[in-house]
Design a binder for these strands. Sequence first.
DNA 1: CAGCATCCGCTTTGATACTG
DNA 2: CAGTATCAAAGCGGATGCTG
Lengths: 218, 218
Amino acid sequence: VRSYGQYCAVAKTLDVIGDRWNLLIVRELLIRGDCRYTDLQHGLPGIATNLLADRLRELEAAGVLTREQAPPPIATTLFRLTERGLALRPVLRELLRWGAPLMLEPDERDAFRSHWLGGAAELALVDSAPEAPALSIELRPSGETPVTLEVAVGAVRTRDGSADSPALVLEAPPPLLLGVLTGQLGLDEATEHGLLWQGDADALARVRLLGAVEAQVA
Amino acid sequence: VRSYGQYCAVAKTLDVIGDRWNLLIVRELLIRGDCRYTDLQHGLPGIATNLLADRLRELEAAGVLTREQAPPPIATTLFRLTERGLALRPVLRELLRWGAPLMLEPDERDAFRSHWLGGAAELALVDSAPEAPALSIELRPSGETPVTLEVAVGAVRTRDGSADSPALVLEAPPPLLLGVLTGQLGLDEATEHGLLWQGDADALARVRLLGAVEAQVA
DNA sequence: CAGCATCCGCTTTGATACTG
DNA sequence: CAGTATCAAAGCGGATGCTG
């Protein structure tokens, strides 16, 4: 909450979203859409409940999110990003890109949630063949719930849960799935390390890392 | 220093550069290039000296910056961003873009440094006529040292101090300078609010906000 | 003077327990 | 489900002192 007191746009941004947990709360809402309090708690393992409540108030006051009364029959409050909050997507994308190399040395003690993988795919991958028919890839991180990539019209969207008729199903520990999706690891190589797959291996060619294009602009 | 303990690239990034002051230290080194300890202190008003020392060690350990012994006759240690540290530029740029609207309501008590303005220009402005001859614009934030924008070959670079033969000199309080540079404020309008200028008003047309191009890619 | 280290008071965080 | 209450530990900001 404490301001840096600097007339600089970066410092002003950090005044709002620089506090601990704030950007991860935005991450959750960006990936999952509207969330209940307990959804956020589940997606933010390690946060203290009083901190979550505090941060939600702060972010609401800053105009990053709103608190909505869901209509019956749900009868619960939902937290939703505002337009201003959604505008943080490019920030999250660049943080993700910078942190990608840090994922190569996984720590066994780290928590993991399937939708983090889905969100990363949505932020960092594009459909390399926008004209081709839509297809789904189902990811099964070992010991976690499955998540589905829907590849269509140039983009990659994700959804929790299994796919109806996936072109490809991949099952492996998260780091292995990441390696395959980013193209750093071939399907054969990953299989040797314990990845299980089923379906059309060519479906992987449909996803491509967002990067080369951006580098030109920047 | 405390890790979020989440196997997520965003969280991993914040483990490294999410601590208070860390990104502002990177900002200083990105804008100004290699810095001495005291240069950093000057560019980070409000930081406690022990915190600066701590953060520099952390960032060094994380591979974001290095500590170099400058050759004689300087004989001081310089802090320099590594390749990995320089790769944070897109992160800073997106933080800057998100925070730009927050600059519209300035707080009189905020600290200000001329090079913050220069750095913002370098991150957010481009040369709209790459083929045209190079030119300089000198900015004089009221009560602060001048900073020079060098507009050439498609880009905007900045340098501390006055220009040799500036095409345009602008003198005004920082918010007014920002308004003029971003195009939100016309030169006439800004003049009514107290801006002083001298030289070729058309030079302003050479700088354009980076934004439209990016939006297409994203 | 540049580059810290130490100490101290205050705030923020984290863990747990409890409640409408 | 959606928080509040409590308390110990860690982090932060400010002042000062030390060392080449």
